[in-house]
Write a protein that binds this DNA or RNA. Structure first.
Length: 109
DNA sequence: GAGCTGACAATAG
DNA sequence: GCTATTGCCAGCT
């Protein structure tokens, strides 16, 4: 099992209408500081995979994507379709992590 | 084959 | 409490 594969698996486990942080995913893979890899992993998916990459944001609840294929607007829209409310904060889309952050049993361990 | 890059997070000062 | 630096590991050049 490679790092990327684990990121995909955990990302796919995120339920609809819920979001997770990069660090959270990284922590599930037993590598809390590999949050950068999580984000980059999702970038390589490029939407071609069946992985809900839009459900992964940074720990502050901000969308920090500016790629052509992953603009903040796109990610925000995908999440809003799932019931996640977004607010424009400091020029970036922000969501309340306290309400929408996914709490899996594995992440609690 | 080696070095650089990359959607962040945590620790130290 | 806030700012700056280090760490993470696989893909890309």
């Amino acid at each position: 099992m490679k790092f990327f594969d684990q990121v995909k698996l955990h990302t796919k486990k995120i339920p609809r209408g819920r979001v997770a942080s990069y660090g959270q995913i990284a922590a599930m893979i037993s590598t809390p500081r590999a949050a950068r890899m999580v984000g980059w992993c999702l970038h390589t998916m490029d939407g071609l995979s069946d992985v809900p990459w839009h459900r992964v944001i940074n720990s502050k609840g901000y969308i920090t994507t500016n790629c052509e294929t992953h603009t903040s607007s796109v990610q925000k829209q995908l999440l809003e379709q799932e019931g996640v409310k977004f607010i424009k904060k400091d020029g970036l889309w922000w969501t309340d992590m306290k309400r929408y952050q996914w709490r899996s049993r594995e992440s609690e361990v």
